[in-house]
């Protein structure tokens, strides 16, 4: 049985311009110890998917529906807010893009790291402190004991992200969701953080959902990728298959748009022309159709159904990209 199983997740937001369908009918499974990448551009629904699973979408204006979101034997859709709070931070944890805004600026690092431990693990002051030092050392913060009294602004961006990861891991969660966790960091610091996540995942068997717009980071870290566009998963597959034999026009476009540091890309990038669709308007055909370079006749007639190419690799695309 998978650790996390999401079926037909749909998240809408009421705005004064109409109802925005941020996520429409997303389904996927995540095995224990697996690293799943969610790739897509801004507005593709990857963050909202994560927030919906975490039950962190404010309702209203949001509205989350799903046939099922099963996690670790629990139906998340049926949990009360109090029960969801018990699970968040304990069995599933999340790390966000902006480590400055996710830490409270007026509380010390020590206070914030021990709080989670006290609440979820019911540790007393001393034990929580010991454990916090252990955790900070584990994520590579030198002289952790002395730094417990420091405030977030005294830490660099990379250090703050480490603290966030330490806090996320403090209760040994079975699932870690990282939302653009390294996007705001410099590449050398990003390398440190990814290295850390890989190590933790290997040592503890934590499952990870890694949300990123950066194909390179995903290629180096994930076992499997879901490519998202306009609130839907348009392609899903094991990492090597998806990168070497992409099956969706959008995945191909994304790769053609990405410059490569190893210079293997063509001399000229092939951008995706146009802009993503407005998610207020109903989408009846393939959402990528207006920007697609490989569209075929069928694309203009009906919405594409997922096509299976190999075990675990499918794409909702009519074009025969995978042979």
């Amino acid at each position: 049985m998978p650790l996390l199983s999401v079926r037909n997740l749909t998240t809408r937001f009421a705005t004064d311009r109409g109802v925005v369908r941020a996520v429409s009918g997303v389904s996927f499974d995540l095995e224990e110890g697996e690293v799943l990448g969610l790739v897509g551009e801004s507005g593709s629904g990857k963050s909202v998917t994560a927030l919906s699973i975490m039950r962190l979408v404010p309702e209203p204006p949001g509205r989350v529906t799903a046939d099922a979101i099963e996690f670790d034997g629990l139906d998340l859709m049926r949990l009360s807010e109090a029960e969801a709070r018990e699970i968040r931070g304990a069995r599933m944890a999340m790390v966000f893009q902006d480590p400055m805004r996710s830490l409270n600026p007026v509380l010390t690092i020590g206070r914030q790291t021990t709080e989670v431990l006290r609440r979820h693990q019911k540790l007393d002051g001393k034990a929580a402190r010991r454990r916090a030092i252990e955790l900070l050392e584990m994520v590579g913060i030198p002289m952790a004991e002395r730094r417990l009294g420091a405030y977030p602004h005294q830490f660099s961006g990379g250090m703050r992200q480490r603290v966030m990861i330490a806090m996320a891991l403090s209760c040994n969660p079975r699932l870690l969701i990282a939302d653009e966790a390294t996007t705001a960091l410099d590449v050398t610091i990003q390398a440190q953080i990814i290295d850390l996540v890989k190590r933790l995942q290997r040592d503890r068997g934590t499952a990870v959902i890694w949300i990123s717009h950066d194909l390179g980071v995903v290629a180096g870290l994930c076992d499997r990728v879901n490519v998202m566009y306009a609130g839907t998963v348009v392609e899903s597959g094991p990492i090597r298959r998806l990168f070497h034999r992409p099956g969706h026009g959008y995945t191909v476009g994304l790769m053609g748009s990405t410059p490569r540091v190893d210079g293997a890309a063509a001399h000229r990038l092939t951008p995706i022309e146009g802009l993503p669709p407005n998610l207020i308007d109903p989408i009846t055909l393939c959402p990528f159709l207006p920007r697609c370079r490989v569209a075929v006749a069928a694309c203009h007639e009906r919405p594409p159904a997922p096509r299976q190419f190999a075990a675990g690799h499918w794409a909702a695309c009519f074009a025969d990209l995978v042979r």
Binding site: M159, V187, G216, I239, F243, R260
Partner: peptide, 21 residues
């Protein structure tokens, strides 16, 4: 440290991870 969008290359790469900030 710069990631490359190619899982095979990524698997083989040796990163020089810098210490500290």
């Amino acid at each position: 440290a710069v990631p490359v969008p190619d899982p095979d290359l990524e698997a083989k790469r040796q990163r020089i991870i810098l210490k500290g900030d």
